[in-house]
């Protein structure tokens, strides 16, 4: 039994905790994600049609009436559901669950663009390449060589910066050690000015995320749908403790 537990602790089950009490809604994570993951900018018209490609967005809801009005912020990204509604509807297995990282993968070269997955996602976390968006030269110089540049007709979404997970794992294995808590940080958590985003391994009970998930402020978005999200929010602001 202890062996089994020890093995489980080594297993990867990546998760994220977002503390809404200190998330200021500043959008630095959105920009960081876009710069890391070669996300194309689509321009004003396409943004207005709701075709923005941000993998992460800050949901802002106005609460109350003037003068007691205040916005509530919630960063929304792919929740990497344990039981993901997007997966069973894909006819070509382009979106599927990873056995290793325990996240939802989007395999761009398999995707044929049916957009069933996006329609079935309760979090609106998926974006679709309606066009080949131009990044005028020499601006393409900053593209991250670790991330595929997607073409038209392909669905995409937050990957938990899987390129960083793979790199971190390779580095740890080259150094002959296990991945440690804090080795891997996705671009959003790395940039977050208030450190509201924490990333780590949920199968390790001693990791920072596992401890935070046990907080009494923790909740998961649309948990009642049975999606088993891997992103946990900590209630904040005026709803603190509520």
């Amino acid at each position: 039994m202890t062996e089994l537990l020890a093995k489980e602790a080594h297993d990867e089950k990546w998760g994220m905790v977002i503390d809404l009490d200190i998330c200021s809604g500043c959008q630095a994570c959105v920009t960081a994600c876009s710069m890391e993951n070669n996300i194309p900018f689509v321009g004003e018209d396409e943004m207005a049609y709701g075709r923005g490609m941000q993998w992460m967005r800050i949901r802002r809801y106005w609460e109350g009436e003037y003068p007691e009005v205040t916005p509530d912020y919630q960063p929304m990204l792919c929740q990497q559901c344990g039981s993901a509604p997007c997966e069973p509807v894909c006819p070509v297995f382009a979106t599927l669950h990873s056995e290793v990282e325990k996240i939802n993968l989007q395999v761009y070269n398999r995707c044929i663009g049916t957009r069933y997955c996006a329609n079935n996602c309760p979090y609106h976390a998926r974006t679709f390449n309606w066009f080949d968006y131009e990044i005028p030269a020499p601006m393409n110089s900053y593209l991250n060589p670790d991330v595929t540049v997607r073409r038209r007709g392909v669905m995409e979404k937050c990957t938990f910066c899987v390129q960083r997970i793979v790199k971190g794992r390779q580095q740890a294995s080259a150094e002959g050690r296990e991945i440690e808590d804090g080795d891997i940080t996705p671009a959003c958590a790395q940039a977050c000015p208030t450190d509201a985003i924490t990333f780590g391994n949920l199968s390790d009970p001693e990791s920072r995320v596992s401890k935070m998930v046990r907080s009494d402020r923790a909740y998961k978005e649309l948990e009642n749908l049975g999606t088993e999200p891997r992103v946990t929010y900590l209630k904040g602001g005026k709803s603190y403790g509520g």
Binding site: E99, L105, T148
Partner: peptide, 11 residues
């Protein structure tokens, strides 16, 4: 399991 995971080569 690791070596056949999609994210080993595609991301």
């Amino acid at each position: 399991v690791l070596l056949s995971d999609c994210a080993t080569c595609h991301y």
